[in-house]
């Protein structure tokens, strides 16, 4: 199979790799780089478990090729915390019981991260709309909405204080 050398930044670190042209980004992350936070739930773009952040956009890593990420800046759930310090979204999910089996959580967190970048103070309805591409089978979403609200408030308060 033809392969191609790609270079990109993942969670702040420069990565170079040879990838098969047909390799999906999710398999590149999970199998070649052992970044197993993003999950595979459907392989058809519906469930969002594989969501990562690529060049400032939420991307379902099961439906793009790794070569399409060449030169890009990529963030996965593993890159959200600042060392031991959790991202307010991670804290929010913990505090508000926004996760159960947690298979959706990495995608949910990464998607919510982009949502708050784009809209720092979303209404509950906007949060629900913003997360509509990420399925959760356990929580019934209510606590996820709370968790995102918690994070938004925390980020906004911290910025207000500055």
């Amino acid at each position: 199979m033809p392969s191609k050398k790609i270079s990109l930044t993942i969670n702040g670190e420069a990565v170079e790799a040879d990838v098969e042209a047909r390799m999906l980004l999710i398999h590149f992350l999970r199998e070649q780089l052992n970044i197993t936070g993003p999950h595979i739930g459907c392989e058809t773009s519906h469930c969002g478990a594989c969501t990562v952040d690529l060049d400032g956009k939420s991307v379902k890593a099961c439906t793009i090729f790794a070569v399409q990420a060449d030169g890009g800046e990529l963030l996965t759930v593993e890159g959200l915390a600042n060392g031991a310090e959790l991202h307010p979204l991670q804290e929010g999910f913990f505090q508000c019981h926004g996760l159960q089996c947690s298979f959706c959580t990495p995608g949910m967190l990464t998607r919510a991260y982009r949502l708050l970048q784009d809209n720092p103070n979303p209404s509950d309805e906007e949060i629900r709309m913003g997360l509509s591409g990420n399925l959760c089978r356990c929580t019934g979403y209510q606590n996820i909405v709370k968790a995102v609200r918690y994070a938004a408030d925390k980020i906004n308060q911290a910025e207000g204080a500055n």
Binding site: R30, T36, P38, E78, Q90, F94, H97, S102, T105, P106
Partner: peptide, 17 residues
């Protein structure tokens, strides 16, 4: 609060795949 969340919110769960 849930004890298992510490790994899950960091993407450090360990699923079969």
């Amino acid at each position: 609060k849930r004890k298992e969340d510490a790994r899950f919110i960091r993407g450090k769960g360990n699923y079969v795949d």
